[in-house]
Nucleic acid binder design. Structure first.
Length: 683
DNA sequence: TTGAGTGCCGCCCTCTGCTGGTCTACC
DNA sequence: AGGTAGACCAGCAGAGGGCGGCACTCAA
């Protein structure tokens, strides 16, 4: 409902309501404020063919009436109630109303008269259906001061309600009329001297209902003190409340009950405001303070005041007359346009006194100062200690408590708590990798990942993280956390050493303990003093005591304690393709079947010669032997075989580099028994 | 009407932490 | 040779900071 009005606010209103029905009951309510607050208005002319209106007219003071007549067209305002489309139309072509030019100290008088509409579909602008003789037609007439505009507002209401509310905001030209029974509102003039007469009525009402509540303190008390209802009015009106709003805006809130109207629920129409239906019982005769909430039909906006709603509804309008000449973007106000143009020009008039930052709006500066300088955080979480500069941040934070995830991925079940995370998540579906390493051009989905990549791969002095419980140094803090979790976390269940009965409760201590077993000869022979580090060695050794020889040559039926001895035997005596290795003395060229023999010889041949390098040994090994050897004793132990073949001295250590060359990285920390060496040399 | 102040939404960023694949040493 | 476990690394999500922009309120 919009109505062009004078900017002069009305600080004083007198509401006079007349309910017409069988056995006409007239109610008049006069609400006034001290005279100095009044904006004087002129007395409107009443609709001429209504006798009862004339009666009201007789009760109305006419002083100060200027008698300016206006004709106005329909403003087409529709007011929606929660229960149904209560259409209120400001007709600009209603000659019955007369509004005077606004003058100081003028007062408003609303004369309310019930008129029932014939149907909801009635054309509001068409008054032909309105039979003045029909008592139950509804017509609400409001004439107001300010701009000399006269207004006829009526309600179309077919349903029956038990509670009725009418909100008239005179200055804002918003008349939200809800659940009115057939009534006619007419704004009449009132003067100060009249107020005292109505005071008694007002008191009567208050006494009869006991629930006329004032919301705005002393000023409203004064309103009630100076205005009031007739004694008859209290039978029909239970709350007539005038609320001088902020900034001089006036609202008149009329709440009616005992009118036996049914609820009517229809969907709101665009542009219609609606009110929450107060919860009251039917036929209630006591006035109640009704909490009024105005809802925008286009969005979730609500306001306690029609004026706010009316201003808000404008944002849904496409009317944006202020166009940016640079980008053609349109704005509703000049201020918005100016701020916008500043974003083009880089003009930032609001400079921070504590740093070099500057902003387009003052609000941005204030927020910046809170973030960077004052650290004021007015928005505090009630659950935890979190506080934020902005309310939206607190709202976002609250979701971490509630688990609310309003932003659902359309491609999977993921839902995010804010829009950015959803957007970032969508890269996992699109494969987009917007961040590129400027050195190796590797691409990443998140900037943080790319940053870590550059730090770890392309930076010097990369920070390392020292484990507080061991000597481990880890490149990433998160991996250190994994390290701590895996190795240094206390485990309730005992972890047993695999070599001894010791038990531990964290993996690191267990591993460290087990390493202590590594170099000890923990396998001890039960028949002699022999000990070794590996179980397989002990197995072979035990056969020297038991005489077991499980490996049999299929050609000559010779038996051996070890597979390797059998292999050596077979190659030497049954494999015609076998070519034994010959080691030649680098000085004299004499050949030997074992390197150790050649080495012993070479020491005699050249006492100052060092042991050959690995390359020299490999070169020597590639030479062909002159002839097959004598067979060794088949039943000898490995040590015995070696000794008999003259390969090893008792207790001689084999050069590690030689074995490394032969074994290609096998674990050389193991005990090297003769059979192992033979096996290695057979490879 | 204007400007300060406020509220809200959106965008982008950083920091943080978890997860799973890969590499490597060790057994 | 194969299994295991720890370090390394990229992917990904949670949480929050900071700012841009605009609508709205309110007082001058």
């Amino acid at each position: 409902m919009r109505h062009e009005a004078d900017s002069n606010g009305l600080s004083g209103l007198r509401v006079q309501a007349t309910l017409l029905g069988g056995g006409v009951i007239m109610a008049g309510a006069e609400l006034s404020v001290p005279p100095e607050q009044f904006t004087q208005i002129k007395e409107p002319e009443l609709i001429p063919d209504r006798a009862l209106q004339e009666e009201e007219e007789e009760e109305t003071d006419n002083d100060g009436v200027c008698g300016v007549k206006e004709q106005s067209g329909s403003a087409g305002l529709e007011v929606e109630s929660a229960q149904g489309p209560l259409q209120t139309t400001i007709l600009e072509e209603v000659p019955e109303l007369v509004l005077a030019a606004p003058e100081e100290s003028e007062r408003h008088i609303l004369t309310l008269r019930t008129v029932h509409f014939p149907s909801e579909e009635a054309e509001l602008q068409d008054l032909s259906w309105l039979d003045p003789q029909q008592e139950d037609e509804m017509q609400v007439t409001v004439s107001q001061a300010g701009g000399g505009v006269q207004s006829l507002v009526w309600l179309e209401e077919a349903a029956q309600q038990s509670l009725h509310q009418c909100v008239l905001n005179v200055q804002e030209e918003v008349y939200s009329l809800q659940e009115m029974e057939v009534m006619q509102f007419q704004l009449l003039e009132e003067n100060v001297t009249r107020a005292g007469e109505d005071c008694k009525s007002a008191m009567n009402l208050e006494e009869s209902t006991g629930s006329v509540k004032l919301q705005k303190g002393q000023e409203e008390e004064q309103l009630l003190a100076e205005g009031g209802f007739s004694e008859k009015a209290e039978e029909q009106f239970f709350l007539v409340e005038a609320r001088p709003g902020d900034e001089g805006r006036d609202e008149i809130v009329l709440t009616f009950s005992n009118l036996n109207m049914e609820e009517q629920k229809e969907k709101p129409q665009p542009g219609q405001a609606h009110l929450e239906k107060p919860s009251t019982t039917k036929n209630q005769k006591k006035a109640k303070e009704v909490k009024r909430t105005f809802h925008c039909s286009f969005c979730k906006f609500t306001s306690s005041r029609v004026s706010s709603l009316n201003r808000h509804v404008k944002i849904h309008s496409t009317e944006k007359p202020h166009v940016c000449h640079l980008c053609l973007k349109a704005f509703r106000t000049v201020t918005l346009l100016r701020n916008h143009v500043n974003t083009h020009t880089g003009t930032r008039p609001h400079k921070c006194a504590d740093c070099d930052m500057a902003f387009v709006t003052s609000g941005e500066l204030v927020r910046h100062r809170r973030y960077k300088h004052t650290h004021e955080k007015p928005f505090k979480c009630s659950v935890c200690k979190y506080a934020s500069v902005e309310a939206s941040k607190l709202k976002r934070h609250i979701r971490s408590h509630t688990g609310e995830r309003p932003f659902q991925c359309s491609l999977c079940s993921y839902a995010s708590k804010d829009t950015y995370k959803l957007k970032r998540h969508m890269r996992t579906h699109s494969g987009e990798k917007p961040y590129e390493c400027h050195i190796c051009h590797a691409r990443f989905t998140q900037s943080g990942t790319m940053k870590m990549h550059v730090l770890q791969k392309h930076s010097e002095n990369v920070p390392k993280y020292q484990c507080p419980h061991c000597a481990t140094i880890i490149a990433r803090k998160s991996d250190l956390r994994v390290h701590l979790r895996n190795l240094h976390t206390y485990e309730t269940a005992e972890m047993k050493c695999r070599y001894c009965p010791a038990v531990f409760h964290d993996r690191y201590t267990l591993i460290q303990h087990q390493k202590t077993h590594k170099n000890e000869k923990r396998f001890k022979c039960e028949y002699c003093s022999y000990a070794c580090k590996q179980e397989r060695h002990m197995t072979v050794h035990i056969r020297t005591h038991t005489g077991e020889k499980p490996f049999v040559c299929l050609t000559c039926n010779k038996c051996f304690r070890q597979q390797q001895l059998l292999n050596v035997h077979f190659k030497k005596y049954h494999d015609t393709n076998f070519v034994p290795t010959v080691y030649e003395c680098p000085k004299c060229g004499k050949g030997f079947s074992r390197w150790s023999n050649m080495h012993r010889h070479s020491e005699k041949c050249n006492s100052g010669q060092e042991k050959p390098t690995t390359v020299e040994k490999e070169r020597a090994m590639k030479r062909k032997p002159a002839s097959p050897r004598e067979p060794a004793k088949e039943d000898a132990t490995a040590e015995e075989v070696s000794l008999m073949n003259g390969e090893l001295y008792p207790g001689e250590m084999v050069p590690v580099d030689f074995l490394e060359a032969k074994t290609e990285g096998e674990d050389l920390e193991e005990d090297l028994t003769c059979d192992m060496i033979l096996a290695l040399m057979d490879k």
